[in-house]
Simulated assay, not measured.
Amino acid sequence: MNEKIMRKKKLQLTFVFLIIIAATYLSSAVTEYNLFESVATIPAAFAWIFSNLIITQEALERLPDILEKLNETIFMSIAATTIAAVFSLFLALMGSKTTKANNILSVIARFVASLSRNIPVVAWSLILLISFGQNSVTGFLALFVATLGFLTRAFIESIDEADQKSVEALTATGATYFQIVSKAVIPQSLPQMISWILFMIETNIRSATLVGILTGTGIGYMFDLYYKNLNYNIVALITLTIVVAVIAIELISTRIRKVIL
């Protein structure tokens, strides 16, 4: 019996592996992508990077302007994340099986979360760009909507994982809905929620660079401007500041998560 099950699993794995190979080959044929040619260009690509992306004294003179735009991007990401977290908490309470008020609100909350989460932030940027134009509001809203869906989903899972005994105990004593949420659900779920918020701040700072290219705001706009002008020295400095900022924020958030979890 065990041998038959093992053979069946091996056949299934072999079948899946063959499908992946066939799909990869078909994709390469359709897109005319050649793996060997791509690998052969790697040395030339690194040579171009080391010869063009050099930070010069002239580029360093633009550092104050770069840091100003970088701060704008970071604060926009933090604001979009924290404000989205407030709305996400409300939607999560409505959508969670533990705290839902009724089935209709639960379905609506889950639908809003699914819709905003499954549309990429770049797509939201393009959609909102048509209505609001190239400005910081568009960038903020794109990050806000994408974050809303992700955090709502994460908060729902955090609430559902909470210990049901305390909820049942408060319900048995005749506690109101708000007392149950504030005394039993939120205290248990809060550390995990904060961890998700910190994770989204990191993610949004990375995404905000790309969003800025599309919406003409923040460090992304500055990167796009100098890249189009072929000023690779300043592009190198902008890239370096983004990398340093992302690493620094990731280290800070990792430290905070270790403390609260």
Results as ranks from 00 to 15, higher is better:
185 V>Q: 02
185 V>M: 01
48 W>E: 12
177 Y>F: 01
43 P>R: 05
100 K>F: 06
109 A>I: 03
208 A>H: 08
195 S>A: 15
125 S>M: 02
76 M>D: 07
89 L>Y: 05
227 Y>M: 05
174 G>W: 05
194 I>A: 10
187 P>L: 07
25 Y>G: 10
205 I>C: 03
171 T>W: 02
244 V>D: 03
122 V>D: 06
132 F>T: 12
144 F>I: 10
162 A>Y: 00
179 Q>P: 06
61 E>C: 02
67 L>M: 14
238 I>D: 12
212 G>P: 03
84 A>D: 02
221 Y>S: 06
49 I>H: 04
128 L>D: 07
190 L>S: 03
45 A>Q: 11
174 G>S: 02
64 P>I: 00
213 I>T: 15
218 G>D: 00
178 F>W: 14
113 A>N: 00
190 L>H: 01
113 A>R: 00
52 N>Q: 11
237 L>Y: 00
83 I>K: 11
68 E>Q: 12
154 A>M: 11
164 Q>H: 14
220 G>E: 01
133 G>E: 10
143 L>E: 10
150 F>H: 09
15 F>K: 12
184 A>K: 08
113 A>C: 03
81 T>P: 01
139 G>Y: 00
124 W>T: 05
254 T>F: 06
162 A>Q: 01
181 V>K: 07
18 L>E: 09
261 L>H: 09
249 I>P: 06
171 T>R: 14
135 N>K: 05
16 V>P: 03
209 T>P: 06
35 L>S: 13
84 A>P: 01
22 A>Y: 14
24 T>S: 13
165 K>G: 11
202 E>R: 00
213 I>Y: 09
203 T>N: 14
212 G>Q: 00
190 L>G: 02
244 V>P: 05
58 E>H: 07
29 A>D: 13
101 A>L: 13
52 N>T: 11
170 L>K: 04
53 L>H: 13
42 I>A: 13
179 Q>I: 01
165 K>F: 04
54 I>Q: 15
